[in-house]
Design a binder for these strands. Structure first.
Lengths: 212, 212
DNA sequence: CACAAATATGAGTAATCCTCATATTTGCAA
DNA sequence: TTGCAAATATGAGGATTACTCATATTTGTG
């Protein structure tokens, strides 16, 4: 909730170039990102070429490098926008969980929503399936897992006041990280098998959260 | 066991160039792979350059392309060798499981051994942490997960004769696939946290296998 | 020994990321 | 308004590197 604002700051690429301060350039940067997203949707992020992004955005190639230190920074920015949205959803979904039944409901719905989001968003799907390609993207995903793992840990500690806090924290981190892996797996097979996999993940995780 | 031989065939790259038939060339190919492995251990597979592999192996660059269609084919061949070894270990470890206690013992030992193997083998670790980078590698890992998932499913069906066979198969596949994801996660954090994560994975999966 | 198939070779091609020197625009203080 | 520093714009070209291909050599075999 109040983390939503902070996530904007986290969106800044690690080795950033200048942040656009003037309005004109902010609009241009937006056009660059839109162009990149469109090209990824069409041909996949592997085939993303800086020259094409520039052409599509209607800017010379030099302007791209004015705001993005390299190609992966563009992809990272797009990825982080999706991650920020996800974090917000997860935070909201978990916010008013008061008991185990509530957690079960919230978790099930979050996972299903997440899966459908992946199916519906070709750009997100593409970036994620190849997310492990780039070191910066891997680190970003790891950081994201830690944040949402922390959210889940908070809830679990509220529900299991006597449990081992270290163990709960580690397990929550693992659950969220494996959730991302499950999505990657589910979107790389048929829709039918993907759904079965997502269901199996939910079953396993819910059992674990109950037993912790 | 009898699958060990078959895995040799699976090692052939998808879009293969000529297979070396003469002894001389087989030795040269071996030198190329050794050179690639050494360079990956030193600088990581991202930084692997075909020119360097050729130089290190003492062959002209053209010879590399005589047997490998492209760079990722070299990495894929190395990856598949490790996978074949892993499959063999897993097959042996699960072969004589007769009851739940035996499965628990075998699974725990396999996971721990696997984790230590990753820690000890820089080449394997490097290839795996970036495995999702390349489409061919991703597909190879998926195929591997299906095979070892099938092995686990066999065992689980033996132990749970009344269980839903579809559900067991899907869960076994998911468990193995998430095992690979867990390794990737564990090797990207400190040794201590990695061990905690591996332990949490074992706990969760064992609970699930018991309850299926 | 002859000859086809396999292998060897490495200079050159093509693709693409990214730089950088220079030109232009913007916001703002005097 | 005007002057000026900082921000932004520009695109030809440098640098890297995967991969090709025409040609030369070696190998197994009838």
């Amino acid at each position: 909730m109040s983390q939503t604002e902070k996530s904007q700051a986290a969106a800044a690429p690690a080795a950033a170039r200048k942040q656009p301060t003037q309005q004109r350039s902010r609009e241009r940067v937006e056009r660059m990102l839109e162009a990149a997203a469109a090209l990824i949707a069409e041909k996949g992020s592997d085939a993303l070429k800086m020259g094409e992004v520039a052409e599509r955005a209607g800017v010379p190639i030099g302007s791209l490098y004015q705001f993005f230190p390299d190609k992966s920074a563009i992809i990272l920015t797009l990825a982080e926008r999706y991650n920020a949205l996800s974090r917000e959803c997860i935070g909201e979904g978990l916010a008013d969980v008061r008991d185990m039944a509530g957690l079960e409901r919230a978790f099930t719905e979050l996972v299903d929503t997440y899966y459908e989001m992946f199916l519906a968003e070709p750009v997100m799907r593409d970036i994620w399936s190849g997310t492990q390609a780039d070191k910066a993207l891997r680190e970003n995903e790891l950081a994201d897992s830690r944040i949402i793992g922390g959210m889940l840990a908070d809830v679990l500690m509220r529900l299991h006041r006597e449990g081992d806090r270290e163990e709960i924290a580690t397990t929550a981190f693992l659950i969220m990280s494996l959730g991302e892996a499950t999505m990657r797996l589910a979107i790389s097979v048929t829709r039918e098998e993907g759904q079965a996999i997502v269901d199996a993940y939910k079953r396993m995780v819910l059992r674990e959260m109950l037993a912790l």
